[in-house]
Design a protein around this nucleic acid. Structure first.
Length: 636
RNA sequence: GCCACCUUAGCUCAGAUGGUAGAGCAAUUGAUUCGUAAUCAAUAGGUCGCCGGUUCGAUUCCGGCAGGUGGCUCCA
């Protein structure tokens, strides 16, 4: 028998018999590897453990512990689920079933939708199949053979998928009687599916196209072992506790009312305070960076929306109102009045860049099914600005916005993801415009030194953009900041400036937001802090608590003094036990409680208690004021 | 907008295979003056989301609508 040599990741070599597979290598290495190996990596490519090795291959064994294994486990678990579904519902047609960020899903075409009971039955069947330890084998068929196989099986969706593949042959995976089209790799046996749970049922369009059939999607999650699964489920529970809708009600920040309308936020005193703090912060930061604060009306004539193109492209999402035969559009965006400000006078290149900033409240008729707490609403306020500059200034302006975003996100301690979206198939503007703007955005991203993804073809029709996404408690991504180049509006509104040579030129325009929508940002912020806002953001920074009625006059004087310095303090002088008042303050997540008993009255001090339960030494009011102001500065 | 599920007191939730409903917390009143996460007692609170249909009778069954939850599509 001929011998081959394979290289291992540590640089050593291992002799094997010709025809040996990854699994044979695992056995040769020993140390129980054969039991935990889920896949291999040959010359950088993930493969099944059954894959045959060749002389000179570099091979890495992927065990359950490797991070790469998770995707394979989840993908194989989705196949296991499809197998269970086909056994229980033979008439179900299979479509696709990939692994996703926190698990997997599989889409089925079934006559009647799955019920929660069905989910339990499917999960039980999966456990049975996993226990049976069915070997999973790979087969390669020619495209024609595969097509006729799936046609015979009546699996039209698979036929459609294969027809579109530009290949001569395809790979299939078989476990028991179940066979599925798949690139792989997969676990060697269903017995490797040890820790999984089906989590929800949802509708999903075939191929993500809302004009095509709605399929039934089952979501599930899977891990290498039970412990990891339990930990994940516990994290989900914890995330539910951080849900901004729950905390918003508990802390009395905001509400919605079906009498008012879906997606319309009602800000209660503490929520409105939080919002006001953010807005004040924003105004200051924008002024520091050379923006001008502007304001426009809520409604603008329909004709103006026709000129901008919104009437043509965005009318479905707009609200209109008509008085005296004149139709007005309620603004869904703030750009138009900013355009009008630019046009209100003749502009010179010396005036540029112009940066118009507006905390602009907009209304968009979002489709009913997409509304989600504060994260997706119908009326919201953007920290919106439009920058008008010369083409030569574009690079510096984009860099300026990115560093603005960086600074602000650092203050809140947010991790974020940046994406560059480039020219879509349908777009306006010259190739030269697109190239220049895309290059400028790209250069600024590179310059920022942070990682970013590129979404080819995902730009707006009017220009390329950078999107910045934050995550909520459940790890869902929400777009907040965005920087968009726009070639249409300067054109449609015939914006010009007089260049140094006396010629009229077209300025370049950037739309940008930093927080995005204040509503959405606050939603994410609540989940980020789990309601424990840092002192500078806390609507109520301190609460004065008396031990008995005897201390009320002194406590009142402390309250007045703190109020005078602008500290957001409230008091609880009720005839209740101290423990009870502390409990309530604690549930309200108030950063500081100022306890005042006979001791404090006697020494003319205050004893602050932080919300983590720790007590600070008693101090004079003046010391307390300095202490609080120091803390505000430190975190902002 | 599409698919599934949900809607009982301010909040969290029980409940009856169709005979108009409860608990805890909160609220109100009284007592209690008590130093670091719940003092005790009493009282009040609901056309069981809304509108139709079936029925002697509907909060319960059926249909429509509204609102919500999880997804899909779309998006700040």
């Amino acid at each position: 028998m001929k011998e081959i040599m394979v290289k291992l990741p540590d640089g050593s070599s291992k002799p094997l018999e010709e025809g040996a597979s990854v699994m044979d290598l695992a056995r040769a290495i020993g140390a129980g590897l054969a039991r935990t190996s889920v896949a291999g990596r040959i010359n950088g490519e993930l493969v099944d453990v059954s894959t045959v090795l060749h002389d000179g291959d570099t091979v890495e064994i992927i065990t359950e512990k490797n991070p790469e294994a998770l995707d394979i486990i989840r993908h194989s678990t989705s196949h296991l689920m499809a197998q269970a579904v086909k056994i229980l519902f033979p008439e179900a047609k299979v479509t696709i079933g990939p692994s996703v960020e926190n698990g997997f899903y599989y889409d089925f075409d079934v006559e009647s939708p799955f019920s929660p009971d069905d989910l339990e039955k499917i999960e039980a069947k999966m456990r049975e199949l996993a226990k049976a330890g069915l070997p999973v084998s790979r087969e390669v068929l020619s495209k024609e053979e595969a097509l006729s196989l799936f046609r015979d099986m009546g699996e039209g969706y698979k036929v459609e998928l294969i027809e579109e593949l530009d290949v001569d042959s395809v790979s299939l995976y078989r476990q028991g009687d179940f066979i599925d089209l798949c690139r792989g790799p997969h676990l060697p046996s269903t017995s490797f599916c040890k820790a999984f749970k089906l989590t929800s049922i949802a509708g999903a369009y075939w191929r993500g196209d809302e004009n095509r059939k709605m399929l039934q999607r089952i979501y599930g999650t899977a891990f290498a072992d039970k412990k990891a699964l339990e930990e994940y489920l516990a994290r989900l529970e914890e995330a539910k506790r951080r849900d901004h809708r729950k905390i918003g009600r508990e802390l009395d920040l905001f509400s919605f009312s079906d009498e008012v309308g879906a997606g319309l936020v009602i800000w209660h005193p503490k929520g409105a305070m939080l919002r006001t703090i953010l807005e004040d912060f924003e105004r200051k930061e924008h002024l520091k960076r050379g923006y001008d604060i502007v304001m426009g009306p809520q409604i603008l004539k329909k004709e103006l929306w026709q000129r901008s193109g919104h009437y043509e492209n965005y009318r479905e999402n707009m609200y209109f109102t008509e008085v005296d035969g004149q139709s007005y559009g309620i603004k869904p965006m703030n750009c138009l009045s900013h355009m009008m400000i630019y046009k209100s006078q003749l502009r010179s290149y010396r005036d540029l860049p112009l940066r118009f900033f507006e905390l602009g409240t907009v209304h968009r008729h979002e489709r009913a099914g997409v509304l989600h707490g504060l994260l997706r609403v119908r009326g919201f306020t953007q920290d919106d600005a439009h920058i008008l500059c010369t083409p030569e200034q574009l690079d510096a302006e984009i860099k300026g916005v990115i560093s603005f975003v960086n600074d602000v996100m650092a203050i809140f301690g947010f991790e974020y993801e940046m994406e560059l979206s480039t020219s879509p198939d349908k777009s306006i503007g010259t190739d030269e415009d697109w190239e220049r703007a895309t290059k400028a955005l790209h250069a600024a991203l590179v310059d920022s030194g942070r990682p970013f993804d590129i979404n080819e073809g995902d730009g707006a029709f009017y220009g390329p953009k950078i999107d910045i996404k934050l995550r909520d408690a459940l790890d869902r991504k929400w777009q907040c900041a965005t920087i968009q180049c726009d070639f249409t509006l300067p054109e449609r509104f015939d914006l010009t400036y007089v260049a140094a040579d006396g010629e009229r030129k077209r300025p370049v325009m950037l739309h940008r937001v930093i927080l995005g929508a204040i509503e959405r940002f606050i939603g994410v912020l609540i989940e980020h802090y789990a309601g424990n806002f840092p002192l500078w953001l806390s609507p109520v920074q301190g609460l004065i608590l008396t031990v008995t009625d005897n201390q009320v006059p002194y406590a009142q004087s402390i309250f007045d003094q703190l109020r005078q310095t602008g500290i957001r303090v409230q008091h609880d002088f009720r005839n209740e036990k101290l423990g009870f008042k502390i409990r309530e303050a604690q549930l309200q997540k108030v950063p500081y409680m100022f306890v005042i008993g006979d001791k404090e009255v006697e020494t003319q001090t205050v004893t602050p208690r932080y919300r983590d339960g720790s007590n600070l030494p008693a101090m004079k009011v003046t010391e307390l004021i300095d202490f609080l102001e120091e803390e505000v500065k430190r975190f902002k």
